[in-house]
Design a protein around this nucleic acid. Structure first.
Ligand code: SF4
Ligand code: SF4
Lengths: 160, 160
DNA sequence: TTATTGTGGATATCGTAGGTCCATTTTAAT
DNA sequence: ATTAAAATGGACCTACGATATCCACAATAA
C-alpha cells in the first residue's frame, strides 16, 4: 500500500511547471534534468497528465509542457488519480462466501444487483476511509505547496 | 494503490472469530469454509496475525484460533499494518535531485541527517494524508462492525 | 501414544511497476 | 517548403511482490 514512484514524479514535475517564471514552455529535457528521472520514463508520465487535461503539450522547436489550468485548481487528488487509476482502495473479493450473507445489507440486495455496488459493513468502513483520504487530498493543491515554499523563502530572507 | 486480498481475508477471519459464540477455538478448516479461501493460503495469513499478537493459536486436537484480545481492542489499522506492512504511504525517491533543494526545509537540514527523516513540503502533505487515514482506521474496530451487524439484525427482526 | 492441527520453507505463476528504445507525428522557426 | 526540435505511442525488457499450493515438521490435547 504505497503510492508509486510515478505519482512522486508527476507531483514534482507539476510543481516545477507551476513555479516556473518562463513565458515559454518547459521541455522534457529540463524536467528530466531537474527531477533526475530519465526522459523516456518521465515523458510517459507527462503524456498521461496531458491525456487527463492536467497539462498542455506542444511539440516542435521551443515546445514543451505547461499547466493546463491554474495551479490552485490542480489538487493532489487529481494527480494521484491520473497516475494510480481510480480503482477503490478496497474491493471485496469474495462476495459469494457464506460470511457475506451475515454482513451484507439484506434490505438493499436488489440495489446491489442493479448497481453492482456493495454496501456491506466492511466495505462501509473502508470506503469511509477512502472518502476521508480523498477529501484531504482534494484540499491540497500544487499552488498550496508553492505558497508555502515562497513563505518559507521570505522567512529565510528576513533572517539574513 | 489498493489493499491486498490478504487484508480482506484477515478482516473477515477476525470478524468470524469475534462473532463466534463457541467456547473452543476455531480451526483453519472452518475459517476456510466460511470465507471461501484455501486452507493453505489462509493459514499463512493467520500465522502473520499470530506473530503480531492479534490472535492466539493452539495446535492439536480441537485446536484452532481465537482473538488474543477483546474485539474492541483490535482496530482496522492494526490488521492493515500487520498484513500490508508499515511502510509509509509516500516515500521520496529522489531527495538528491536539484528540485529537492527548493522544497526541503533548509533550516532543519541537520535534523534530517540525524533522524533520516524528510520534512519537505511534498512529504508534509502526503504524511498528513496518511495520518488522517490512520486516525480514521484507528477508530474502527472489529467489535464496531459486529455491533452494527447485531443492530441491523435486531432491526430486521423487529420488522417481522 | 497418537491423531489432529498449526507452522514454515520451497516453489510456482502471474500481473504490474519501473524503465528503455525507437519510429512516427506534430509543430515552430527559418 | 524545409528542417530541426520536441512530444507521442508502441514494443519490449526486467524485477519483484501478490496470490497460491504442497509438504515435512512441530506442537498439543485427548
Ligand atoms: S461482507 Fe462485504 S466485504 Fe465481506 S464478502 Fe460481503 S460484500 Fe465483500
Ligand atoms: S522535496 Fe521532498 S519529496 Fe521532493 S525530493 Fe525533496 S524530500 Fe523528496
Amino acid at each position: 500500500m504505497q503510492f508509486s514512484k510515478s505519482t512522486d514524479y508527476a507531483l514534482h514535475a507539476l510543481i516545477h511547471l507551476g513555479q516556473s517564471e518562463h513565458p515559454n514552455n518547459i521541455g522534457i529535457k529540463e524536467l528530466s534534468a531537474t527531477l533526475g528521472v530519465s526522459e523516456s520514463y518521465l515523458s510517459k508520465i507527462m503524456s498521461k497528465l496531458r491525456q487527463d487535461g492536467i497539462v498542455r503539450a506542444v511539440p516542435g522547436v521551443n515546445g514543451g509542457y505547461e499547466l493546463a489550468r491554474p495551479a490552485e485548481q490542480i489538487t493532489f487528488l487529481d494527480v494521484i488519480q491520473v497516475i494510480e487509476g481510480r480503482q477503490q482502495l478496497f474491493e471485496c473479493s469474495n462476495s459469494n462466501s457464506r460470511q457475506h450473507l451475515l454482513l451484507a445489507e439484506e434490505g438493499t440486495v436488489r440495489d446491489q444487483k442493479r448497481q453492482g455496488k456493495c454496501e456491506c459493513l466492511v466495505a462501509k468502513v473502508m470506503n469511509g476511509a477512502e472518502q476521508h483520504l480523498h477529501q484531504y487530498l482534494r484540499e491540497r493543491t500544487i499552488q498550496s505547496v508553492l505558497d508555502e515554499a515562497f513563505k518559507r523563502c521570505d522567512y529565510e530572507a528576513d533572517k539574513k
